[in-house]
Design a protein around this nucleic acid. Sequence first.
DNA 1: GTTCCGATGTACT
DNA 2: GTACATCGGAACG
Length: 192
Amino acid sequence: MAAEPGSSVAVQRLMSQSAEMAARGLIGWTLLVDGVGGVIVETEAYDAGDPASHSFGGPTKRNAAMFGPVGHAYVYRIYGLHWCLNAVVDAASAGSAVLIRALAPTQGIEIMSARRRGLPLRDLCAGPGRLCEALGVAGALDGASLSEPPFSLIPPASDPPVICGVRIGITKGAETPWRFGLSGSPFLSRKF
DNA sequence: GTTCCGATGTACT
DNA sequence: GTACATCGGAACG
């Protein structure tokens, strides 16, 4: 077998699960865009029945990708100026996604630092808007497959220690503990 | 360390 | 008009 084709199968298997399971399972994977990125250390789950989810209330022009194929990206603008990257998950219930909230930078750190105006390593990808700026993710990638260029997703060698807590920055469904993080990582957007 | 605030696209009342 | 899955900078302690 050549280098990467197997990972597409692994991505599909991971992302066919419920949003909660997929969000937990994504911790420790390496996410790259054009070879630049790092290890996913923080995620949040949003499913179709969740009042905090953009898909709650059905498809719109903005959230169309959430109702598209599993394993593709949902990229949207937040507060009019930042981008946020999600992975579309859960084939059994359309409209579910996992928000990628933070990475530990490993690949292309100089490129990310330049895009982030020389900010310290800890601040390059510690937040959903920050990691999109560092990786060059923008609206043009909405709906693109996460297992084809420019994206690549690489599984971890072993299951990392995962902690969970309540999600950040929402008002509806705020008590649901669907935020997941790599235990002890210094690159989380906030402490748990 | 903390709190406050402005930037502004998209969905919704 | 208001709310929002955010960020960075200013002001303050």
